[in-house]
Design a protein around this nucleic acid. Structure first.
Lengths: 150, 150
DNA sequence: AAAAAACCAACTAAATTAGTAGGTTTTTAT
DNA sequence: ATAAAAACCTACTAATTTAGTTGGTTTTTT
């Protein structure tokens, strides 16, 4: 699994867009200043986000980036996936050929964990993050915890 | 977050121990052959597992390693932690000083995800893995999914 | 005494990540 | 028209991490 600065930067930048991009497009220079992320690095990330149609760009002065969809319809998992951070923790990229073409001893464990991580991040939209500044899991998790622990 | 070959190797090797170590200690050479993990690399991993008191060693011919506790009492999270793979995905190692000493925009998101991953892996023992060869999460997850999705 | 094993330290190759450098193209405002 | 602001693009680089190697020593059994 890869979940490093790159994925965190991408989500942070998209969240910045969701917060500041209501009226006019937001330039990467602004995001760079606010979030303290190198401008060139942001450019590379936004190239990928654009390829995956998560953002639209406006060139020229006053230009910048806008979310390509409502913030309710963009999910953290999509952002992470777009910048090439796979949330998959299996050794075989889910193929199941990890030990002589068969699944290895621990394949199902990693597969299940991967599914859970992806499921968790697929359920959180940018709008959720804007609403409560990232405190998202607390919502349902009490019930879930009780179920798991009982 | 780091969850790479190292952590997977460690869990696989411990599972091998749980399966083959009932009667006599298991040598790393055996694990190395069965699981196709470099012997020297296994040695490094077991040095850490021993330091964290997850395994006991027996030196000399016929020696090897044994689980230090019942397989019901050793959890995947402990193994991952022992070999220095942190399952924490925050940028600040959970300290919450990610943006000028304050929490960054996405801190809670990563913190919640980290907690979930750790919670998941803390609930799975080696015995669970032996029982159903790793197919563990399926158990409770249907109910959980329904709750989350409704 | 020999062999099997744990134990140990230092090194190395490969991969990945984060970041830099140095541009071009497009578009707006003056 | 021109200058400036911004996206867009490609290639390079430094640092870090990972996986693995090398070459031992120590302990214990046969």
């Amino acid at each position: 699994m890869k979940l490093t600065t790159r994925g965190r930067y991408a989500v942070t930048a998209m969240l910045d867009l969701a917060i500041h991009g209501e009226m006019q497009p937001v330039s990467l220079a602004d995001i760079s200043k606010r979030q303290e992320i190198s401008l060139s690095y942001l450019e590379q990330l936004f190239a990928k986000l654009r390829r995956e149609a998560l953002v639209d760009s406006v060139r020229g002065p006053g230009g910048g980036y806008r979310l390509a969809h409502d913030s309710e319809a963009i999910f953290v998992a999509q952002i992470i996936d777009a910048v090439d951070e796979s949330v998959d923790v299996t050794n075989c990229q889910g193929k199941g050929n990890c030990h002589h073409g068969e699944v290895c001893l621990t394949h199902h464990l990693w597969q299940d964990l991967s599914d859970r991580i992806h499921g968790f991040l697929s359920g959180i939209s940018l709008a959720d993050l804007v609403d409560n500044r990232g405190r998202v899991a607390a919502r349902g998790s009490d019930t879930v915890q009780k179920l798991i622990l009982q």
